[in-house]
Amino acid sequence: MNGTLTLDGFCHRLAADPLRYRKLHPVAMAGEFVDHFGVPPFPRMEGIAGLLDRSGIGTVVLSHETGGLRGYHVGTRDGGYLIHVDASEGRVGQEHTALHEAYEVMRERLHDLHPRIGLAAGISLCRQADRFAAATLMQPYWFAIFAEASGLDVVALQASYGRSYASLTIRLAEVMRHQPLLAVLYERGPQAERPPGMPGQVSEGLRATVVARTPGFRLRMQRRPLSALRGLLPRRGAPPPPGSVAERVALTGRPAAVDRVSGYDLWRADDLAVLARPVIWGGQVAKVSVVAVPYRDRSVLLPQFANAAFERTFHAHQVL
């Protein structure tokens, strides 16, 4: 094998790059990883395991005894690594876990070879590894094609990629940077205490777990104090705002659209077009996916109307 197509070769490539600190961001590092090792556009478990083994990153072992973890890695006496992956997970989960652990191995080895390059720890490293795995499995060229063809539809993207709704929502904002957009995912978790004055239907466990936007998505009213924005824009950890399209979808279980949301500025330059779709599990709404774009860009959402029958509202005021 070419000596550079190894774990150490990849680490030396990163360390020698004048832009290494930019490229050590997990999403950028995924791009370097794909380019260096020739990762195919749609990696599958067999190919991932083979690549990790050949490059010396680690030997993937499917195990039924992972101690409740999805995966972990350990060093071996000969200086290599074993990457244990929970055998009870589905293929999609195993692929993500193998790449998650591979990222941690690469960062640890990079730190060993070049101690000046820092190494995150704990939950920070874990989150970085998740973003690396998602970016490797959902590579930007093809992801952008699917996203545009679907009308920025996270539900349709999930059907194509099989990845988690959360990782798809984050990836949508990472890849579609040229398109101003706001993507929000509400998910049902443990029953939370109802906020004072909040209607019961709204607080039935749905909370915003992902709120992601592209750099171009910015409202003029964001220059106002933060208190002026609360209740108008989605916030991570909060339920769907009362009267919002997300609340309507949560209550009806049907896709909904607002052709024009206005009231953010006097000139209506910041008006938005908003679509929301439910994910139904076990007969109830388990998730709600929301995407908003500037009203002038509303045509990018049109393909979604071919994917589902939306209840349409032609105008709303300041509530997504």
Rank of each mutant, 00 (worst) to 15 (best):
N2S: 12
L7W: 03
D8I: 09
H12C: 01
A15E: 08
K23Q: 02
L24E: 06
A28V: 05
A28C: 11
V34L: 12
D35F: 11
G38F: 01
G38Q: 10
V39G: 00
F42E: 15
G47C: 03
D53H: 05
G58H: 03
H64Y: 09
G68W: 08
L69F: 11
L69S: 15
R70T: 11
R70A: 13
Y72V: 09
Y72A: 07
G80A: 09
I83S: 01
H84F: 13
V85D: 01
V85P: 00
S88V: 15
S88D: 15
E89H: 12
H100N: 10
H100W: 07
A102G: 13
Y103W: 14
Y103P: 05
R107T: 04
E108A: 04
H114M: 03
P115I: 09
A120H: 02
S124P: 05
L125G: 07
R127V: 07
D130P: 03
A134N: 04
A134S: 15
A135P: 08
T136M: 10
L137S: 06
Q139H: 14
I145L: 15
E148F: 08
S150G: 13
G151Q: 14
V155M: 10
Q158F: 01
R163G: 02
I170C: 12
H178C: 03
Q179E: 10
L182R: 08
L182C: 10
R188F: 07
Q201I: 10
E204A: 10
G205C: 10
A208Q: 00
V210Q: 04
A212K: 09
T214A: 05
G216V: 10
R224G: 07
P225E: 03
R230D: 07
L232A: 09
L232S: 05
L233M: 14
R235F: 09
R236V: 14
G237A: 13
A238C: 12
A238S: 14
P240H: 04
S244R: 02
D259L: 13
S262E: 13
G263W: 01
R268T: 09
A269S: 14
V274M: 04
L275F: 12
A276P: 00
W281P: 00
G283E: 13
S289P: 00
V293G: 04
D297H: 14
D297L: 12
D297R: 09
F305T: 03
N307R: 15
F314A: 11
F314M: 13
F314V: 14
